[in-house]
Structures are given as structure tokens and as C-alpha cells.
Design a protein around this nucleic acid. Structure first.
Lengths: 197, 197, 197, 197
DNA sequence: GATGAATGAGCTTTCATTCAT
DNA sequence: CATGAATGAAAGCTCATTCAT
């Protein structure tokens, strides 16, 4: 009953499955992707997947965990920014995301995860956790770096701008490519993310 | 080859199916909901659904069309606002949406639709259309009502705030209930939506 | 309970259905053709077909009857030939059939009917009837026109050559087109169909 | 992309399916036979059939291939006959076939296959192949065994007699049983199949 | 650890037929 | 006579999951 620690090889094997699943989920969505194809791409028999994961939902949850961790990592990068270049850094990251550089896979699962979270409690729990973790991180960074007293409110506003920017312009490849952050929102972010004194 | 006009009864029957499908899709998502259950709830044999819709995707597309139409209708309500109360009206609508009053069903399909649009070209086309229709409507309203010269940029910013607000706070019923629009974003909207002179 | 005689209009309506069914059966075969499409092509509601035919099998049987009647009519044309040109007439008809002139529809149902006859007793009965009717007709013609004493045996041989010629060369359009009756079989027919004295 | 060689067990399992399908097809025809019954008779779950065959058409094609191979094998037996008993051997085989000895199943699919070939290109290709393979085999045998210079024309004539004999007498069990080859055709075959010098 | 054969319920869809109008 | 709405069983096929090896 004690949780066995996983060996390096086991972890590698698990990740093989998760990488394959990630690809499949991106291409077909959670519920159109089949275990057989995941197994194929993971170079593993379909039966063997069940040594590493209890079932398909278990894989989905692990994928969601990975995505969330990666999003939190990106947030943490903000901690390395200098106070007077803080707003610039946030805006730069937003634009990077907008142009899909380096994070295509991740962002294409974003909506799949949110949609799933509306019917799948295990996923919903994780999404809630992500939201509050991001809020906490941002609040802490804003308070410590910028000395803001209303850091939590600024964090909320930034999250809304961040998510809204991701969603609003539509998803076509061309639009995506030439997208840049809206000037009014840029100004807004510069305003609320200015160091306190 | 000419599209036969549908009789009132046929339209009613079609809507019976769409209403049933909407419920099922909200509860289970597009791909977990089965035709059998849709038929059950529409009080119709499963075979008979195919007199009204070519296949399941056809139903999904019709549902998406309904959702889009309803979102455009809500946007159109803004045209009835007085210029000096414009920002207030927008904010009020946002908060209404935040609290889920009267539109729970609709908004719960929102993410399902966006996720679907990433793998289903027919849905993608519709989502693209919705985006540009909203942008156009907002731009026109802002220009004519408020006399803004940068109405299109304001429209973009508002859409981002609108969508972001919908997404950011998380989806739990309780949070949903007590949610109110972030004060910084409220101020932002009041700023950009002030009449021109 | 008495068999009502059919009015001219009723007969026309029935034939409308049979013509439509014939087309569908040729294109898709008996069991892939659907009642809905037959109704469409007959310009009649699918339900109304059941005023003229008990069910789909009833239509198949009527089609088979028509095909058989048409084949017997063609046989009867032989009765008009002069004795000394008899073999030529038979050979000419065979070549006409080989080249598919005027009888594409019919011949394309030929094998469908034979295949059906192997599992459907009602069709089998009709095919048996056709076989013996053809045999009788040929025997009578051969006896009376040519004065053959072994007319029945000649009839059997001719039927085999006739059917075999239809089947053997394969069904490709091109081959069909340039096909002509095998010279050895031509000679054979001339031999057995020569007037008796 | 390389075709994995099948293990002995896999081949056996595949044949289990083909044997079951053959029975079903003989009894009901290709399009009335259901996958469920094929699975039942193959003592296999219906889902598992799809590990061995892509779909039902794939099974039909495999069945057609088996039938064709078996017909070509029978033709090849002619190569073992002595030149002076050649015609006798051919006639004997024809009569064997006529009486349905040992080949009921095979011949009862014959017409089903030909009918199918008229709407199913994959089957048509195979039937065309069979026709030309038979023609080639017969031509070669006739030329080498009997020294015929018009071997190809003789081959065509024989094929017509062969197929025609199969078809003409009708299919009833009783008739089938007492059928014997028509004396005129017997004489014809003896004539054209006599050794050259 | 690893395979892939095997299951069987479930899926979407088709279709001959019936029946109220 | 004529319609087409309606049924429901059955079709072909997919799929997550199990298990003997």
C-alpha cells in the first residue's frame, strides 16, 4: 500500500506514454484519440500502458498535470525580471505566446483541458488549483518585486488580460502569426505593473 | 437543389432535437454524448433524428450556429444603450454573465465549442465568423454611439477583457456566484468607452 | 378477396416503380438499393409504394418477371426467321447481346437475378420457369422450322453456348465492345442449326 | 510499411473467419450476411474480426481470392492428363462440376461473385484476373499438350462451354444431380481438343 | 516487464415498413 | 390516392480494458 518510488526507467517509460498521448490529444482531442494509437506512438503495446496508468482518464489527468506545471514554470520566469523592466517582460511573454513560438502544443490543449474540466471533476480540481496557484504566484511577485499594495487585484486583472488575449483573436494560423498585443491593453499593463514608488 | 422551406412543425421538431442535444452536450460534451440519449430526450426514435440532420456533426454545427446567434444577439443589445451610460451597460452585462444568470447553458458550451474548433474545420469556420462579426458590431457601435476614432482597437481590447473575464476566475459554482468584475478592468473599460468629446 | 383488375393508371404507376427499381438495382444490386431512393426516382412517396407492392421482395419478384418476359420475347423473335437463315439469325442475336446494344440494363441484372435465385425460393422458381420456357420455345422452333428430330438436345446445347458466351469474356467495357462470337462456336451453331434435309 | 509475415496461429485464425464467412455468404449472400453471425460461427467476438480484416469488404475480397485460387488449381489439374485422353479428362471434370460433387460451396458463390463484380471494382479486378489467368492456362496447356496452333481460340470456346454448362441447366438440387453433359457439346469438345497430328 | 489476442458493450447510421393525416 | 413522419431493429465498426502467455 505504500507508494513505491518510481525508477528512472519507469519514469522514462511513463513519459513516453505521456508524450505520445499529448500528440494524439492535440490532434484529435481527448475523446477522439484512441489508446491503440497512443500505444503505437509510445512504441509500446496497448496492454502495457495499463502498467503505468490505471486507465485513459488517468493519462488525461497526468497530461493536465504536466500542462499545468509547464504554465506555472513560465509564470515563475517572471521572478527573474528586474523591477523597472517588469511590464516589458510580461508584455514580451504575452506576445511570444500570441505568436505561438515554442508553445504550440501546450496552447492547443488549453481549451481541450478547460472544456474537459466542465464535465470531469478530477480535471476541474486541477484547473482550479492552477488558477489559484497562478494568482498566488503573481500576487507574490507583484508585491515583492514591485511593492504593490493591491497586488492581488492587479494579479486578477493581469490574468484576465492574459487569458483574454489568448482567446480573442481567433485561431487561424495567419492571424496568429501577425498578432501583436493590443496597444490599449499594453498601456493598461504598463500602468498597473509600474513599480510602486 | 432548391432548399425546401421547412414547415412550422418541422422547425419545432428540429428544435426539439437541438434542445435535447444542447442538454446532452452540456452534460457530457460533444463526443461523450450519444445519439441514443439525444433521441430519448427529444422524445423521438434515434432513427428519426436523421430525417432532420444529416449526422451528428450536422447537429453539432447547428448547435454552434445557435450559440453564435445568441451571442451576437446579446452584443446587439448594446446598441440600445445611451452614450453616457454606455460603459455602465457593458460592465453590467459582463457581471451578469459572470454570475451565470440566465445563460448557464450557453456559456457552458463555450469552451466545448472552442476546443472543437481546433480539430473540426466546419466549427472553426463558424468560430472565426463569430469573432469577426463581434469585432465588426462592437466597432460600429463604438464609432457611432461614442464617436471613437480608434473604435476597432477599443473593440479588440474589450473583446479580450470580455473573454478573459469569462475564463479567468475558474468555473466553480461558488466562485462563479460571488464573482464581480475586477475594479482595475472596470476602470479600464470606463476609460476606453467614454464618449469622444 | 377477388383479384381486382388494375386500371391503366394503376399499371402505369406500378411501372413507374419498377422502372425506378430497375435503375437502382442495376446500380447497387438488390440488397444495397434502398426503398427511399426507389421512391425518389419513381417520384412517389416511399409509403405509397406499399399500395402497389407488398414489400421489397415483391418488387424484386416483379422485376425478375419483367426481365424474364423480355428474354422470352427475344427468343420468340427467332420464330420469324427463315429456315435457311436460321443459324445466321441466332448468331446475329448473340453478337448483338455480346456488344451490349440495347440491352445493357437487362444483362446487368442477369447475374444479380441468378445470384438471388440461389437464396430466394420465389426467385428460384421464376428462374427455373424461365429456363424451361426457353428450352421449350427453342425446342419447338427448332423442330418446326428446321425439322430437327433431336431438337431438345440442340436446344440444350444452344442455351449453354448462349449463356456461356454471355459470361465468359469478362465484363470490362472495352472487351465487351470489341467482342465477337468465337469462330469455333459459330461453326458449331451453324452445324447443329442446319435445316434437317 | 513492410507487410508483417503472419504467424501460423494468425493464419489459422484468419481462415477461421474466412470459413465462417464463406458459409454465411453461401447461405445468405454477401449483403444479407451479417458480421455478427460470421463472428459467431468463427467462434470469435465480432470486434476481434477487425484485427484480421479491415472491414467486411476486405473479407469479401479475401473470399473471392480463395475461390479464384481454387478454380485455378482445378484448371491446373488438366496439365497432368495424357494427350490422347485429354478431351475425356476435360469432360469428366465438367460432369463432376455439374453434379456438384465436392464443390457445392464453391460453385454456389460463383454467381454471387460475378454479381458483386458488377458494382464492386475490387471484386471486378479479381474476376477479370481470373478470366485471363484461366484463358492463359488453357491456351498454354492446349498448345503444349495437344500441339494446337489455334490454342487461344479453342481456349475461349472451351471457357464458354464450361461456364454455359454451369449456368444453363438451372440450379435445383434434383436437376443438378442427374445432369450430364450435353452430347452435342461433348462431341464438340472431343473435336476441338483432339491432338494435332 | 511486456505482448497483443480477445472481449463485448457501445457507437453512429441505415433501412424496410407502418400509419395518422 | 398520396404523403412523409415515425419507428426500432439491425447493420458495420470502434474502443477501453483485461488477461494468458
Amino acid at each position: 500500500m505504500t507508494a513505491e518510488p518510481l525508477s528512472a526507467k519507469q519514469i522514462a517509460r511513463r513519459n513516453q506514454v505521456l508524450d505520445a498521448a499529448s500528440e494524439c490529444f492535440v490532434e484529435k482531442g481527448f475523446h477522439r484519440a484512441g489508446m491503440a494509437e497512443i500505444a503505437d506512438r509510445a512504441q509500446m503495446s496497448s496492454g502495457h500502458i495499463y502498467h503505468y496508468f490505471k486507465n485513459k482518464d488517468d493519462i488525461i489527468e497526468a497530461i493536465v498535470d504536466r500542462e499545468i506545471q509547464s504554465s506555472l514554470d513560465r509564470i515563475s520566469e517572471l521572478e527573474n525580471l528586474q523591477a523597472d523592466k517588469f511590464a516589458d517582460g510580461v508584455i514580451a511573454q504575452l506576445e511570444t505566446h500570441l505568436n505561438g513560438v515554442g508553445s504550440i502544443f501546450k496552447s492547443r490543449l488549453n481549451f481541450e483541458i478547460i472544456a474537459e474540466s466542465e464535465r470531469n471533476p478530477a480535471v476541474e480540481k486541477r484547473v482550479q488549483f492552477q488558477r489559484s496557484a497562478i494568482r498566488t504566484k503573481l500576487t507574490n511577485v507583484f508585491a515583492s518585486k514591485l511593492g504593490l499594495t493591491n497586488a492581488d487585484i492587479v494579479a486578477d486583472a493581469c490574468m484576465a488580460v492574459f487569458f483574454g488575449t489568448m482567446m480573442a483573436p481567433g485561431r487561424s494560423a495567419e492571424e496568429q502569426h501577425k498578432a501583436s498585443l493590443n496597444p490599449l491593453l499594453t498601456a493598461f499593463l504598463r500602468g498597473v505593473l509600474a513599480p510602486a514608488s
